[in-house]
């Protein structure tokens, strides 16, 4: 996978942000329609995997906000926290609360469900995205090692992942 096709790299430069935007849209849409944190997170994982194919696993991992493990942990914390307001009001844990903020002509609906879903999104993206990118990195290292052994005269592969 080391000498990468320029076409793929160019395409991914456009696709990566587009897929992330789509994943966020799915997350948002899941509020009342099919979609939600898990599915949105999976699309984000697909974007990260694609980036790992095009630019190498190191780049893909470094583009995950906070790094994979922390992203997942923060997501889990967000989901856990989303149940606390209900607990503070004497309601059962994870009973969700809605709040609508009027913004001129429209209104902004906020809810603890959104926080929960955002947490799920981050858990899925961080954990599975990290896993996929790492797994591809294993392959890269093997490829680098395989190329380095039979051709001692050559200068070696151009891109060596740290």
């Amino acid at each position: 996978m080391t000498p990468r096709s320029a076409l793929i790299r160019l395409a991914v430069r456009v696709l990566y942000p587009a897929m992330l935007a789509a994943s966020l849209w799915i997350l948002w849409r899941g509020h009342h329609q099919p979609g939600g944190g898990f599915i949105g997170g999976m699309v984000a994982v697909a974007a990260t995997s694609l980036l790992a194919v095009a630019e190498g696993s190191h780049t893909a991992l470094s583009r995950l906000p906070f790094g994979p493990a922390r992203l997942a942990a923060c997501g889990g914390l967000a989901s856990l926290t989303s149940g606390l307001p209900a607990l503070a009001l004497g309601r059962p844990y994870l009973e969700h609360l809605w709040l609508e903020i009027p913004l001129g002509p429209t209104k902004l609906p906020l809810s603890t469900v959104m926080l929960f879903d955002l947490g799920v999104y981050a858990v899925v993206w961080g954990a599975l995205g990290g896993l996929c990118a790492h797994a591809m990195g294993l392959d890269e290292k093997a490829a680098v090692a395989a190329e380095a052994v039979p051709a001692p005269g050559e200068s070696g592969p151009e891109r060596v992942e740290p």
Binding site: A69, A73, C74, G76
Partner: peptide
């Protein structure tokens, strides 16, 4: 559970 996540962060 929260502690596990916080110590991971």
């Amino acid at each position: 559970l929260a502690t596990a996540l916080l110590t991971m962060v």
